[in-house]
Design a protein around this nucleic acid. Structure first.
Lengths: 369, 369
DNA sequence: ACCTATAATGAATCCAATT
DNA sequence: GAATTGGATTCATTATAGG
């Protein structure tokens, strides 16, 4: 793993490295507004009592590590307040945070996020396709965990690769519930004895979706509870820089070895579908200017119910109604708004096509310049 | 709708009626420990501060112009604290609460539940099969809402019809993610103008699952934010009693008319699958007393690896080990526990059968009495 | 090599009645 | 009330062993 540093004013960022020590103390050393995304998987504060056995009498390997144990909700809240405060400070104004938790801790996390001025954009449910059952039949199978995605403050900018997630979701808008398997098999890191290296390793698929949807290549991702480095591994593969913080030497060692083996994807593979909004604006009139549509040519509505004539200035006219492609479409449909680019169709060689095709043609030419 | 009242000490409960007024004020009039379940769908539009009341029931003044989110959260928390405190007071020690919310308010709700000593049993994700898309493509489709199920305190008893929910889920343990459509079509109440009568009417399927899983027929269900009465309608159909509280006269009117039309299910239809735990206990010694097994008879373990002899007092002996059918089985297997009823087998006519068959025979005789 | 049976395991706030 | 005892309870997936 090559440790890249980057100058930000007087301070160099420890990019693509794992800082040893306490999350709050290490974040304090980072400058203000230096990271694009925080991904945090803090201790869940499970409050387990006795042993639990499966019906076949085998014992469940519980998360009973010291780092997960807190005296009280009050102590847990203090801890949460402290690390979230630093996380917010190091976040760029247009940055965002993801936190993950279960019902044991996520309500504390969410409330404190809001208290500090973070603005929740979505909560996301990770629906586990293969959760551990409830062996005693006393409750529902705890089959999900919750992620909260929040911007730094209300109204702040944030990165959202809408089209990329839509493409990942087979062309349908990505929803707030994600079905993903838990981390098992080859992906699950083992220690020398063959036991799991970390009790709560997250699946890479989860981080892949988070980073694809809410960061861009070259962004800096901070994970203050790095563990065995799932965030770092996926960030490296996806051409993002990471900063990890981890207290336990054993986890740091496992993470370092793991990340060293990651081969970044090709740059080409990292090109994602970009939102139409980010693409250069094209005036309808340009289509007329360029001769793609003739003044006087008649367009048909998508549903075939309405017709309008193109005018030389790039407006449409339909009987009494005149205006932009959007205005005329909206008025004819009695709708508050209308996307004229997909609403209006023209004919070529007997085929009806949306005028958006002509816009795409212009954009392709622009990109070729 | 017939209003049934029930005496509890000096106070009669206003069963199957809708109390007009503020939730906190109306709950104050109810006695301690009088309801089995609270189902609460509190308002979460943080901007509608007109809905918010201080613990002393005074109205919170709206500050429309310079709306400060932090201040608003504080007021929402006060409101939450006040109604949850009353809800907890009126709950029986073995009762439970369900609250439902979205990311706007559910983190406040969950944290306050924990602060007041409620003990979260599960959180449940209502995964909407037909959510409203995110039209502007700026976030993920908000395709779920969250319910929290909590007992009155840590270690408290609670009702959970495990087998009934498992049956509802085609024989596999019910999970914490429930896929249900939103409330539309015939089920959606309309006002005189044809507009929806309530902005956030919940589907009856959701309440059906909640009441089936966590109440019994005859239980009292309190809904302090009754709205158009989904809780009451499903409670009536399912043979549960309800108490509704609602401030808005229009909602009360719609709910009253709706519930009047509900026909309760047959008593037979309300019988749900029960677990073995509910069946009467049978001592192993009874099998010996009744001559179903002879003292001195040898039993074999399920796996054929161990043998033990029945003694006249209903204990087993295997070489050095003596004790109950469970104790001897556990010791021989080196297991923390063992169900002797399914572990030990006896032979009749050359066939090996579990001794549990003899227990079932006795239970059948008991039922026949 | 390929198929089948058995074993292992995962962020878990996992019992209730009787003595 | 603490300690004891009866006895009820699991799903999806991967890894390993056996044939």
């Amino acid at each position: 793993m090559t440790t890249k540093t980057e100058s930000r004013g007087a301070t160099a960022l420890p990019l693509n490295s794992i800082l040893a020590g306490d999350s709050v103390a290490q974040m304090r050393k980072l400058p203000d507004a230096c990271v694009d995304l925080v991904f945090a998987d803090p201790p869940y504060n499970l409050q387990l009592r006795g042993d639990l056995h499966r019906p076949d009498n085998s014992r469940v390997d519980a998360v009973d590590d010291d780092w997960d144990s807190f005296e009280s909700f009050r102590k847990y809240d203090q801890f949460t307040r402290a690390w979230l405060k630093q996380a917010r400070r190091v976040l760029k104004p247009g940055g965002a945070i993801w936190v993950i938790g279960s019902y044991h801790n996520v309500y504390r996390l969410g409330a404190e996020l809001q208290n500090q001025g973070f603005w929740i954009l979505n909560d996301v449910v990770w629906r586990k396709s293969n959760p551990m059952p409830n062996f005693r039949g006393k409750r529902l199978t705890n089959a999900h965990e919750t992620l909260i995605w929040a911007s730094k403050s209300e109204g702040a900018k944030y990165t959202f690769n809408y089209e990329a997630l839509k493409a990942l979701n087979e062309g349908v808008q990505m929803r707030s519930d994600w079905v993903l398997p838990i981390c098992t098999g080859h992906e699950r890191l083992k220690d020398e004895t063959g036991a799991k290296a970390h009790p709560t390793q997250k699946p890479e698929s989860l981080l892949h979706r988070v980073l694809l949807g809410t960061t861009n290549p070259g962004d800096v991702v901070l994970d203050p509870f790095f563990g065995t480095g799932t965030t770092g591994a996926v960030a490296k593969a996806m051409g993002r820089d990471f900063i990890g913080i981890e207290r336990e030497a054993a986890y740091r060692k496992a993470a370092t070895a793991r990340i060293a083996q990651v081969r970044p994807y090709d740059r080409e593979a990292l090109q994602v579908s970009t939102s139409k909004r980010a693409e250069p604006r094209v005036a309808f009139g340009v289509l007329v200017e360029r001769g793609m549509l003739r003044p006087g040519e008649v367009l048909q509505s998508m549903n075939g119910r309405h017709r309008a004539k193109v005018r030389a200035d790039g407006t449409l006219v339909a009987t009494e109604i005149k205006g932009s492609i959007h205005q005329v479409g909206a008025q004819l449909e009695g709708a508050p708004s209308c996307n004229g680019w997909t609403y209006w169709h023209f004919r070529r060689d007997g085929v009806s096509l949306p005028i958006d095709m002509l816009r795409q043609q212009i954009r392709a030419e622009m990109a070729g310049d």
